[in-house]
Amino acid sequence: MSMLDFQDGELERIEAQVYERARRRGGIDGRDAARELGISVEEAEEVLKNLRSLHLLRAVGGAGVPADAPDERMEAVPVELAFGLLSGGMEHSLREALDSLGAARRGVAGLRAVFQTLTLEGGNGDGPLRIPDTGTVNELIEEAASACVEEVLTCQPGGGRPAELLKEAVDRDLSMLGRGVRMKVLYQHAARRDRPTQAYVEKAVGHGAQVRTLADLPPRFIAFDRSVAFLEDEGAADGATVVTQPLTVRFLCRVFDVAWTHGTPFRSSVENSAVAEGIQRSIIGMLADGMRDDMIARRLAISLRTCRKHISEIMQRFESETRFQAGFAIREYVDAEALGTPSE
């Protein structure tokens, strides 16, 4: 049966079935699709080609496998991310091709409707997608950045970032800023003393970015147009998780917004009193929770020596000669603040 022989809606249904199999299994190739759906390898290749053109599948890659070969393995891209890449990229580079863009959007929308029907009982097709390798994550972030048209939010805990990562990010970020994309970046206070980060912030702010710092931050993530977010998997050496489910993305962006309101504008000069006070308030809360010095230092991305210097100043502030006395005074102080009453 030729692809032209499919009845109305049948092609979309086959494409949705192939996409669903790729999503659930982590990948699919032409021979697998042909065998499982009872179609020829040539027809299966055409289906994969169509899905790839809609950014719903991307090549996993592999040595010795030619592009578009039946054995070339494809992995699924989240539907919302594919929609953003397709429409955003076409709007940016092919604004004159409005008819083509509308047809492409209708194609994705129609396929998504069929896909949602197929997955009503099998789970949410827009759920988090774990991407195991950093190379693929970086490629997807680059694609999402190219399609971004309104806003990007970045949360970067852990102090200063490696110079090589900042060098890779600066051209991408300046390109977004040049297109009028709003950019907000959160770092921890410790990043203020990092020279590569200082240089990156100076350049980004000079092109319109806003950068603030806090003592403590949520896990690392980046969100584009409040529609897709990439989250670092804490404890994992590589990869990330892509989230497109609207409620989850809105929640992450709301967490960012709350943190942003408490942030202090980034300054590369010696940290001011507001920053030092923010660090010490965080340490007070962590001491009240019984955290060890080394745990606090890691959480705030500061050295153990700096952490203990702050703790010594806190003990003087509470007029405590021992850690036991300080712990008792701190707990009273934290409890009084929680109740909204002044501590003696």
Results as ranks from 00 to 15, higher is better:
Ala22Gly: 07
Gly135Lys: 10
Asp289Gln: 07
Leu252Cys: 07
Arg24Gly: 06
Ala69Ile: 09
Ala113Glu: 06
Gly159Pro: 01
Leu339Cys: 09
Asn272Gln: 11
Met291Pro: 01
Gly235Thr: 11
Arg35Glu: 15
Ala259Met: 13
Ile302Met: 02
Thr134Phe: 08
Val47Tyr: 00
Leu186His: 05
Glu20Gln: 15
Val201Phe: 15
Ala229Glu: 06
Glu143Ala: 00
Asp133Ile: 14
Ser146Trp: 12
Arg331Pro: 00
Phe83Ile: 03
Ala338Asp: 12
Glu271Ile: 13
Thr264Pro: 02
Glu232Ala: 15
Ala297Gln: 04
Asp8Trp: 10
Arg58Met: 09
Asp68Arg: 10
Leu54Arg: 05
Ala34Lys: 00
Leu287Met: 11
Ala259Gly: 12
Ser268Lys: 08
Phe230Thr: 06
Lys167Thr: 05
Asp68Ala: 05
Gly290Cys: 00
Pro265Asn: 04
Met295Glu: 11
Gly263Val: 09
Gly160Met: 00
Glu80Asn: 01
Val47Asn: 03
Arg35Phe: 10
Pro78His: 09
Asn124Asp: 14
Ala338Gln: 05
Arg193Glu: 14
Gln156Ser: 04
Asp225Asn: 11
Glu46Lys: 11
Arg105Pro: 02
Ala97Gly: 01
Leu37Ser: 01
Ala169Gly: 01
Cys307Glu: 07
Arg179His: 03
Leu85Ile: 06
His310Leu: 03
Ile283Pro: 01
Arg172Val: 04
Ile314Trp: 00
Gly27Arg: 09
Gly285Cys: 04
Thr136Tyr: 13
Ser312Thr: 07
Thr322Phe: 00
Val114Arg: 13
Leu174Ser: 02
Ala163Pro: 03
Gln17Pro: 05
Asp194Glu: 04
Glu72Asp: 07
Phe230Leu: 10
Ala237Lys: 13
Ser87Gly: 08
Leu153Pro: 00
Glu46Gln: 12
Pro128Thr: 14
Tyr200Arg: 05
Lys203Pro: 04
Arg31Pro: 08
Ala103Tyr: 11
Gly27Cys: 13
Ser40Thr: 14
Gln245Ser: 02
Cys148Pro: 03
Tyr333Ile: 13
Asn124Gln: 13
Leu98Lys: 14
Thr197Pro: 02
Gln7Lys: 10
Ala67His: 10
Gln198Tyr: 14
Ala169Cys: 03
Cys253Tyr: 15
Ala326His: 00
Ser273His: 11
Phe328Asn: 07
Ala274Ile: 12
Ala82Pro: 02
Ala336Tyr: 10
Ser312Gln: 11
Asp99Pro: 01
Phe6Pro: 09
Pro342Gly: 04
Ile279Ala: 03
Ala288Phe: 08
Pro162Asp: 06
Gln17His: 13
Arg21Ile: 12
Arg35Ala: 15
Gln245Arg: 14
Gln7Tyr: 08
Val47Asp: 07
Gly88Asn: 00
Asp216Trp: 07
Arg179Asn: 03
Ile28Asn: 09
Asp171Met: 01
Ala63Leu: 04
Thr322Glu: 06
Glu332Gly: 05
Phe328Gln: 10
Glu75Gly: 15
Ile302Glu: 01
Ala338Val: 06
Asp257Tyr: 15
Arg25Gly: 10
Asp257Thr: 15
Asp335Trp: 14
Leu56Ile: 08
